[in-house]
Structure formats: structure tokens, C-alpha cells
Write a protein that binds this DNA or RNA. Structure first.
Lengths: 252, 252
DNA sequence: AGCGCTCGAATTGCATGCAGTTTGGGGCCC
DNA sequence: GGGCCCCAAACTGCATGCAATTCGAGCGCT
């Protein structure tokens, strides 16, 4: 995808960004589950680079919210809370409404063909694994963002879409991707017709329904596990050591 | 300088994030103008760290769009094009509409007092330098974002607000901050009243007018300088070496 | 048996060193 | 005098090394 505009740049890509892309993809395809450990050594060895580079890549992914980085602790794939997931979708809805608003009636035939081709690919991938379907669905939205020619929109939509992907692997039950594909087609049609209000509404509904299908329930007490449940209570202690409540006073 | 926010965490803050904060502030206060060079050595020496850390910080700031990083080339403070500036404001408007929508009628009295206090500070700073006024105005928006308790919104609003700050130093004439302050007060009032639609409209108008006041004109040929004018023509060559048009064939 | 403690292995935080690239200024040729 | 080239200084890309911290398994105590 980054190769879209690359014709002659065969060997100039930063090693850091290569690793970032690889990890990003591994995360959104759920090869790396939330909470998975990411030691710098192991990454460096796996990708044939030094810890310095792996570390740098982790820093970038942390800035994107895909990785959690705590001082002196091993990096892990981010485990967004249910609320954070909901917030991510809220932001995403607004950003993508902006995308389609800018795009309505401004797309060339070539671009529309490109979009249709992508959805065709989604269609063909229905038989495959969920991970691939999810990735393709996400990339449809990123492709739309690219067409705005707004680097900021591309970056933000990409980031937030990846994060939504991540949450899907946490809170979603295996969902059918068919309706999503249909909604993608409807969006393309509305874009081609140039009906900005309509396509914004379609996108809003599309993302909202994905969110509602995915983020099944608040489940106040049935979070992922003990760690999540206790997370808010530990907020004050994350910066330093634990308070050690059960510590009994003891001579010597 | 690193001791600013340290109350109990006397020695735990990442050196990287300290440098990031310092540079961010220097950039938005225009102590570092767009295009200013940021050699890793110099930064490291200035902040008393190694190049490794300075480099990592530059990576983070590049991810935020405040710094431009080209392979094997010295890092520079970002110089957004006029179009990118406009795009940043467009994104910002949508994000901040979301902020105030979430906040309407959900603010405590303490929070409203906090907001008023901040605007008071903006008022007092009117006599000072433009740089401080701009920073305070920006921080008002970030303060609002914080009150949503949504880390994603905080991050995106902060980033895009900083970037808008940056563009202000490029394209804006010295502008009066008074009307902005009044608009801030109006937004607080509408938030307190809980009129979501109204406050969204106010925020939209506020940011739009700031953008229009700042981004004075497209000025197709009067960009910042030769670099900007030629930028689009150089797109294809940025990745690799220059084409060397005037190269004369020569023996030996 | 259960719990806490301790110490070694694993891991991070950071600086430094080396190789490759870019830059820009002085000299050389025209 | 003007333009080109070459080379040294400056700078980046990256790996490695060392100190500090965390993690976890085994041990001892109750």
C-alpha cells in the first residue's frame, strides 16, 4: 500500500518503518493478540536489526496507540478498554464523515473503479480467514482517506481504523462481513452520485453499526480479566511502585 | 526545566518525552521557525543526552507532523503547505465539534471555573508577546479536550492544534487575540448552558474564523519562498537522487 | 503446604563507535 | 570571471556495550 506511489524507490525505506508496517499488520490481523509481549531483542532478531531499531519502531507504534510502553517494562500490544474503543469509533465516525464529504462528486472514474476493485477483493476474500477480511475492510476506509489527498486525514483515519481493528479482536464476536461489504458498495454509489449528505449518513450508519455489532456490551463486571477490572483502580500507582497494602509491619 | 511537572516523580520521566515537550513548545512559540534545522548532535548536547535520545524524540515529533525527517538529511521544523494548513483546520473543526458535543451539559462547576480561569490567564497575557497568547489560546482547546476523558481525542486535538499553531507562524499576519478570547468565553457559556447544537456552531465558527484570519490567501505564486513553490515539482525526486539535468557528459 | 524472600537471568535505558551519506567551500579548468 | 569538481567536515543510520531495573524460579521460613 505504501508502494502505491513508489516506482523507483526500491531500496530506500527506513528499516524502522518496515518493522512498523510488519508489526501493524501482525497486530490488526490478530497474529499478535492484545497483551502480547514485544521484547526488543526478539523483534530485532526476528527482523534482522539491532535493538535500537526495534525500540524506535515500538516508539512509533506506541505513538499510534497500537502498543503500550511502560518504563523499564516489556512492551505489549495495546489492550484498549471498552470505553477507549467506543471513543475511537466516535472519533472515526467524525473523521470519515469528513472524508466522504470532501470526496463526494470529486472522484474520477479511475478512482471509483479502484474502489470497486477493492470491494471486489473483499468479496473474494469472504471465504478466507476473518483476519484478512477485517484487514481488507479496514483498508477500504484507508483507501478512501488517501483519495482526499490530505496527509493529515490519511494519517488519522489510518491510525484510528487500526485501533478499531485492534478492539474488534478484543470485544467482537466473529461477525459476518457481508453487510459491511454491501455498505461499502452503497457508499461508493453515493460518492459517485455526488450526494454528500447521503454518503455522510451512509458512512455514519456503517461505522456505527460496525461499532455496535462489535462492541457487544459494556459488561461492567465482565471485562476481559482481572487486569482490566483493576485497571482504573491502579491508575494512581502506575507511575511508581505499588502501594503494597497487605504489607505487614515487621521488625528488622 | 524538566522539573516543571515533577512533584513526586522526581526521576521517572522519559528523557525522550521531556525533549519532545521542550521542542514542541519551542516550535509553537515560534522560537524555532518552520524550516529551522534540528541536528541530532546539537539537540543532544543542548539537552544533555546522546544522539540516540534526540533522534528518538525527533521521530516522535515527526509522527506528530511537527518535524520533517528525510533520510540521511538533517531534520527540520515542518513547513506545512497552505493546503496542508487548511486541511489541518478542517480536521480540527470536526474533532473539536465532537469535543464540545461530548462536553455540553456534562461539565462540573469546578471544570467551568477552570476554563474561566484559563481564559482569564489569556486575558492577562494580552499585553505579552504574541507567542504566549497563541500558546495559551491553543492550550484552552487542549484543556477542553482533556475534559472529555478520551485519550484519543486529547491526542488528536493536541496534535492538530499544535500543527495549526505552526501554520499560524507561517501564513498569519500579527492578529488580534481579543475576539478569540471573547469567543472562548462564549463557548464556555454555551457549554455551561448545555446547548450542544449552539456550542458546536460556536466552535465551528470560532475555528473557521481563526483559520480565515490566519490563512490569508492561497497566493498561488507567493508561497513562502522558492522551496515551497518548487515543492510539488520535486515530489518525484524526493525519494532518490536529483535527476541532474545540467549534467554534461564527460570523459573520465 | 503456603507465603515471602532472594538472587540470577532477562530485559530495558542510554551512550558511544563506526560506516555511509550529504554538504559546502576552495581550488582548478575553461 | 564563471562554472565544475573534489574533498574534508558534518551529519545520519545503525550496531554494540554497559549500567540499572524488572522478572521469575527456587529456597527457606512459618
Amino acid at each position: 500500500m505504501a508502494a502505491r506511489a513508489s516506482s523507483k524507490t526500491s531500496e530506500s525505506a527506513d528499516k524502522v518503518s518496515v518493522i512498523c508496517r510488519a508489526l501493524r499488520r501482525a497486530i490488526i490481523e490478530q497474529a499478535l493478540e492484545p497483551g502480547a509481549k514485544l521484547p526488543e531483542d526478539a523483534l530485532g532478531e526476528r527482523f534482522g536489526v539491532s535493538r535500537t531499531i526495534a525500540r524506535h519502531a515500538l516508539g512509533q507504534l506506541a505513538a499510534e496507540g497500537l502498543v503500550e510502553l511502560r518504563r523499564n517494562r516489556i512492551a505489549v500490544v495495546a489492550t484498549p478498554s471498552w470505553q477507549e474503543a467506543r471513543d475511537a469509533f466516535d472519533v472515526r465516525i467524525e473523521l470519515e464523515r469528513l472524508v466522504v464529504r470532501q470526496l463526494a462528486s470529486k472522484l474520477t472514474k479511475v478512482q471509483i473503479a479502484e474502489l470497486n476493485a477493492h470491494v471486489d477483493a473483499e468479496d473474494r476474500a469472504r471465504g478466507g480467514t476473518d483476519a484478512v477480511s477485517i484487514r481488507l475492510a479496514t483498508e477500504f476506509h484507508i483507501l478512501l482517506a488517501h483519495m482526499t489527498n490530505s496527509p493529515i486525514l490519511v494519517r488519522y483515519v489510518s491510525e484510528v481504523a487500526y485501533r478499531c481493528c485492534l478492539t474488534l479482536s478484543l470485544y467482537s464476536r466473529p461477525h459476518s462481513t457481508e453487510c459491511a461489504i454491501n455498505e461499502h458498495r452503497a457508499i461508493i454509489a453515493a460518492l459517485a452520485k455526488g450526494d454528500a449528505a447521503k454518503v455522510m449518513e451512509l458512512m455514519h450508519h456503517h461505522l456505527d453499526s460496525v461499532a455496535n455489532r462489535a462492541l457487544v456490551a459494556p459488561t461492567p463486571q465482565r471485562g476481559r480479566d482481572l487486569l482490566d477490572i483493576l485497571a482504573p483502580y491502579a491508575d494512581e500507582v502506575t507511575s511508581n511502585r505499588v502501594v503494597k497494602l497487605p504489607k505487614i509491619v515487621r521488625r528488622g
